[in-house]
Design a protein around this nucleic acid. Structure first.
Lengths: 205, 205
DNA sequence: AGGATTATCTGACAGTGTCAAGATAAGACG
DNA sequence: CGTCTTATCTTGACACTGTCAGATAATCCT
């Protein structure tokens, strides 16, 4: 019956995705190969092509999941923060960085154009846009993602906030700030929070 | 004689590097393969290994050159700016982004840990540190790169400034801000300048 | 039961990085 | 001059990759 078929189909598909996630987290995106994924999922090296057009399609799916999780990180942080805008801004930035530090490989994947061209994967793109929307509305700005003018004064604080969180996350992730920022994840998160706070204070005027 | 030998040696080495740069700029880092480099340089597929231990060693050399050029971009921008700290900060950030937009592939290379582990290539690392030094001293902070404490209040503005420039550069480069930021390089640079300016005003108190 | 569709596998091809070993040539030294 | 060493570069091989094509098996529908 249809139910059984769907379950089985999802079964293989799911194990392919799980194997992909495991590989990505173990050895980085470079060691996520179609053949190794198939090996781990216990299927032939060609089976994944029945569910994903190519390697990039798998990456797009993982990236989409990543944006969903990033959204949850930020939404829950905003919910917990005091309703003052400055506090929310800081909480959101900290959540962004916490996500990046705790999910380094998927974060890289999400923000590298050559890994997966999101314009070719509308579902993943929607999830990405949802994150931007959250940032914008939290900062009290209405943004139409299809708008042609992203340089209006209204948008400057949004882009600036996003940029500082993203830049800090990236620099920490790639080790450009040295280990001196802290050994443990907690220490590094706290240090990032201090930088974000420094900026948030000045943004709030 | 020794001179001739050196010249010849540099000749092949140089053509290997030139082929690498050309490939990187044409098809991105993904299409920079040892074999294609060798093909372009007109040597056997194994010749490059005489000058570079492996693919990463070539990338490290290119990254080092990139840091040198980034330094020049920033130093010249600072020199042209009015001596006010806010102006210098803004000019430096704009130069950082201009470099990224005009040299996207080498910029990616420079800031991706898995591309080349700079700690294994001290010459390239020195050049990278020199850039950080320039940022710090321009903002009036003395930084010892080997210092253990990068979270002192003094350093917060340096990290924040670097982060916003780096984040904005990265997001633009990877197309996360959409094409709406401008079609031409000039438009995009100008838009970036506005964001950096927005931040610099508030940083300057 | 039989045809059609879906799911999966086996095999091949061109490409990769890089190890191993051979070839060539040039310089040093007696 | 002859030999020895070393730098330079080549050829060949191996294991790996992504993915196209075709064969095969399983399942569904009538």
């Amino acid at each position: 019956m249809a139910a059984t078929k769907t379950i089985l189909r999802d079964d293989v598909r799911t194990s392919i995705l799980e194997a992909s996630i495991a590989l990505m987290n173990e050895g980085g995106l470079g060691s996520l190969s179609m053949r190794e994924v198939a090996r781990r999922a216990g299927v032939s090296h060609q089976a994944p092509y029945h569910y994903f057009a190519d390697r990039e399609a798998i990456l797009a799916e993982l990236a989409g999941d990543g944006f969903d999780r990033l959204y949850d990180y930020m939404a829950s942080a905003i919910g917990l923060a005091r309703p003052k805008m400055g506090d929310k801004n800081r909480a959101m930035g900290e959540a962004y960085i916490r996500f990046a530090l705790n999910n380094p490989e998927v974060f890289r994947l999400m923000f590298r154009a050559e890994m997966c061209d999101l314009s070719r994967y509308p579902e993943a793109k929607l999830k990405a846009d949802k994150c931007l929307q959250l940032v914008a509305t939290t900062l009290g700005v209405n943004v139409d993602p299809s708008s042609k003018d992203k340089t209006s004064p209204d948008l400057a604080p949004v882009i600036a906030s996003w940029s500082i969180a993203h830049g800090l996350a990236t620099l920490m992730l790639e080790g450009k700030l040295g280990e001196a920022f802290g050994e443990t994840l907690d220490q590094r998160e706290a240090a990032a929070g201090r930088i974000i706070g420094f900026y948030s204070e000045r943004l709030a005027k």
